[in-house]
Deep mutational scan, measured.
Amino acid sequence: CHSECLGNCSQPDDPTKCVACRNFYLDGRCVETCPPPYYHFQDWRCVNFSFCQDLHHKCKNSRRQGCHQYVIHNNKCIPECPSGYTMNSSNLLCTPCLGPCPKVCHLLEGEKTIDSVTSAQELRGCTVINGSLIINIRGGNNLAAELEANLGLIEEISGYLKIRRSYALVSLSFFRKLRLIRGETLEIGNYSFYALDNQNLRQLWDWSKHNLTITQGKLFFHYNPKLCLSEIHKMEEVSGTKGRQERNDIALKTNGDQASCENELLKFSYIRTSFDKILLRWEPYWPPDFRDLLGFMLFYKEAPYQNVTEFDGQDACGSNSWTVVDIDPPLRSNDPKSQNHPGWLMRGLKPWTQYAIFVKTLVTFSDERRTYGAKSDIIYVQTDATNPSVPLDPISVSNSSSQIILKWKPPSDPNGNITHYLVFWERQAEDSELFELDYCLKGLKLPSRTWSPPFESEDSQKHNQSEYEDSAGECCSCPKTDSQILKELEESSFRKTFEDYLHNVVFVPRKT
């Protein structure tokens, strides 16, 4: 048989008469490798580009789960590009990614509803959504962080984005990388972005840091009482949809009607710091009717980097990364020049730590249904340095008659930039024990000054392991946590139920 035959053949030295091919099969003959313009397919066939392209389009058009959109890589027609490569849609070739590779997620039936953290986790790592997304989240724990972890990498949506009755959302900033909504599939009414009845939605994105392009379709905003109209108009300008909307697409009466839409800028007039305090004062603000001013709200939190936005980490279910302080308005003076500047002394802060701070007014709604208010920009203030805590785990070892090696770990709280350490030492008198000992005694162990690591005695271990207080009263049991108490109650309830079950099964009433 021919060298490319495997198993047997019907005619000697003829690659077209093989029972099976050793390498690849091409047009009725066995070959060692697939010549151009053919590609290896499933490690035994040679196919042309049209064959591989037909497989790709067949799966793409069917949208069946589990099928493969075949691509070409290293002269092979394979189910998908290997790690580190992405497909070129024009020629199906796998090309190296520039940075992290995109991950295209194809949605069944063309859309997916995100109504819980669990459903959001199914899209973790996706960068391109081939379909439409509907966000409908009523509640949950730590929602802002969970949504950002699972949806934060999405850069492109081919269909539309719909935010509907998501009472738990305060902001859409968890879509931190969303840059493009194509609108290839539109919501009824030709809408590519749809926001309806979101009672706590206050911000779409921080438009000073976020760009969003909507290729096709219109915007729809109705019944978002805490979303200011200025935020919607800003989205029109940034996304390129200005002029597409009709009169009733953006409701003037049901958007922002319960919001404090600040239209003035508060400026800080005085800032002073110490290692654990920050004193702030800002310019006074009074609405047209000074009785509408209820006070100020001061927001602050630790910020290692200057990239904080107002609604980071917030949701309507209680999660809030900001510390909020309510401040009463100052006494009002008739003389504008003698107006008191409101302020606040922030206490209990960490030394040498940068804080993000902003302040906003708290006002009631005027009778004319106009909203007044003022808010400052987010500023960054760093507390002063102070003395560091003591170095940890000092170790001293003498390696000769004239040297001592000293080692330690950095302090747990540096409280500033540590530039150097101060080492103090003092000579001590020799131990009298060394002169009084009889060095001729056998088995004498000389006193040693070398360091030995501390260890816990058996008594201390027994005390720590004991669940009861000892007789001397030195140790006591740790208080039980809520989960331990709940577990004990469940076990007790189970024992009672099981005992009742045994009584009912074992003891049967005697027939009379």
Score class of each variant (00 low, 15 high):
106 H>T: 11
106 H>E: 15
107 L>Q: 07
110 G>P: 10
119 S>T: 11
119 S>H: 05
121 Q>L: 05
121 Q>G: 10
121 Q>W: 15
122 E>A: 12
125 G>L: 11
126 C>P: 01
131 G>T: 02
131 G>K: 01
134 I>T: 03
134 I>M: 06
137 I>N: 12
147 L>H: 10
147 L>E: 02
148 E>W: 15
150 N>D: 07
152 G>M: 10
152 G>C: 12
154 I>N: 01
157 I>H: 01
158 S>T: 13
159 G>H: 03
162 K>H: 11
166 S>Y: 03
166 S>V: 05
170 V>K: 06
175 F>V: 09
179 R>N: 12
183 G>C: 00
185 T>W: 05
191 Y>D: 09
192 S>A: 12
193 F>C: 11
195 A>D: 03
202 R>P: 01
202 R>Y: 14
207 W>N: 05
211 N>H: 15
217 G>W: 02
218 K>M: 07
218 K>P: 15
221 F>S: 09
223 Y>T: 06
223 Y>D: 05
224 N>L: 13
227 L>R: 00
227 L>I: 08
228 C>R: 01
230 S>P: 02
233 H>G: 04
233 H>A: 02
238 V>W: 15
238 V>C: 09
241 T>W: 12
242 K>Y: 02
243 G>S: 10
244 R>K: 14
249 D>P: 11
253 K>N: 09
257 D>P: 03
258 Q>G: 01
265 L>G: 14
266 L>H: 01
268 F>K: 00
269 S>R: 12
269 S>K: 12
272 R>K: 00
273 T>V: 06
275 F>N: 07
277 K>Y: 15
284 P>I: 05
287 P>C: 06
292 D>Q: 04
293 L>V: 03
293 L>D: 04
297 M>C: 11
299 F>I: 14
303 A>S: 09
304 P>M: 15
305 Y>I: 11
306 Q>A: 03
309 T>S: 13
311 F>K: 03
315 D>S: 13
317 C>Y: 09
318 G>A: 13
321 S>I: 07
322 W>Q: 02
322 W>K: 00
331 L>D: 12
334 N>C: 15
343 G>K: 14
344 W>L: 13
351 P>D: 01
352 W>P: 00
357 I>H: 01
360 K>N: 11
368 E>K: 12
369 R>M: 11
370 R>N: 04
371 T>N: 08
371 T>D: 05
372 Y>Q: 06
374 A>D: 12
376 S>P: 01
376 S>F: 00
378 I>Y: 09
380 Y>G: 11
384 D>A: 15
385 A>L: 04
392 L>Y: 07
396 S>K: 08
399 N>K: 13
402 S>P: 10
407 K>R: 12
408 W>Q: 01
409 K>F: 06
411 P>S: 14
